Amino acid sequence: MLNMIFFPVFSTLFFSSRYDAEATYFDEGVRSAKRKQLEEKLLQLIQPASQSVLGHVRLGTLEKFKEVFDKALNGGEGFSLASRNCTQLCMALFDEGFADAIIEQANWDTSKVRDKLRRDIDMHIASVRAAKLSEITTHYEAKLKEALSGPVEALLDGASSETWPAIRKLLRRETEAAVSGLSGALSGFDMDEQTKGSMLQNMENYARGVVEAKAREEAGRVLIRMKDRFSTLFSHDSDSIPRVWTGNEDIRAITKTARSASLKLLSVMVVTRLNDDDNDSIENTLSVALVDSANAAVKDRSITTFDPLASSTWEEVTFGHAEVLASIVYNFMLKNFYFQISMV
């Protein structure tokens, strides 16, 4: 490729020398003007080849940068350090090749070629940086989802008073591990504290979102779980042995126990309690409305009491529509109550 320039350059020098020899006896002013015209015409012929060579050097240097940059990153070198060192190396290589392709006789502005190379390198660095950050973020998000989804589902399945404290402990532990790992992975990118802090906060929000999504998913199956728990406790004794009905059992007490356990499950699953200060009276409200009120109704059907569930403004309830939910649960519990009695 360089021969495309060197040959015309030599030709320029050769023809200039011959012109000087043949025009020795010409007027100095005429000879100089004609010589200048000859050189300009020859340089015009050379310029396309020169631009082609410079473009070739630029593209070759860019490919070299991509090669050494990938090698440095795969070798464990920090992103910012690798980008800085590889850029300096390749720009120096370009300057060497660039100097060989420069024609001193031509006063061409070749700075645009170097600037274009630097922009291409910067664009490649930005593209790789975005891809690496996305890859790192996705990696830790996947680890969080795996570490949280299964255990949270298991804890909600065994709903008890310790369910949400255990979930909060799990969330805190896994979030701290993910944030710590992400922070270490970002240390090689030399990003400003605000950007880094934002990414770490997004990771914390993602972890919380995983738990909230799983809680909503499990809450959608709460009635099935309540039915299973009610049936299990109603048809089995405290030792989990199937009941043998003799007619002497206290049906009302057994039903109340099974119903209370089902409502306990409901109270755990309908509210997302991820803050240590999350205190609510939902379990007590459900118990008063669906257990105590049912017993009171049996004793005195003429008394009309205030229904604490007759509200659609329970902000704590995970999937909203508390009034509709309470109505479904209430009807479900009554049907189970009368169904179980009819089977005795």
Rank of each mutant, 00 (worst) to 15 (best):
A142K: 14
E40K: 10
S11T: 10
F10P: 00
E22K: 14
S17C: 10
T285S: 06
T285I: 13
D20G: 00
N284L: 13
I303R: 08
F234A: 10
T232W: 06
R118N: 12
D115Y: 06
L263V: 04
A177L: 07
L156I: 02
F319N: 14
F230G: 04
Y140F: 15
I167Y: 04
D292H: 04
T110V: 08
Q340R: 09
A213E: 15
P308H: 08
L274S: 08
C86M: 14
L325Q: 01
S260V: 14
R243I: 15
T195L: 13
M123N: 15
T313G: 01
D250Q: 01
A49P: 00
V30T: 15
A294C: 02
A23K: 05
T257K: 11
E77F: 10
L233T: 07
A21D: 10
D278A: 14
F7A: 08
Q51D: 14
A130C: 10
E204M: 07
I251W: 00
R208A: 10
D109K: 09
A33V: 14
R225S: 12
K196V: 15
K143T: 00
S17H: 11
T318H: 05
S262L: 04
L43E: 05
L290W: 00
W314M: 15
V30E: 13
M91W: 03
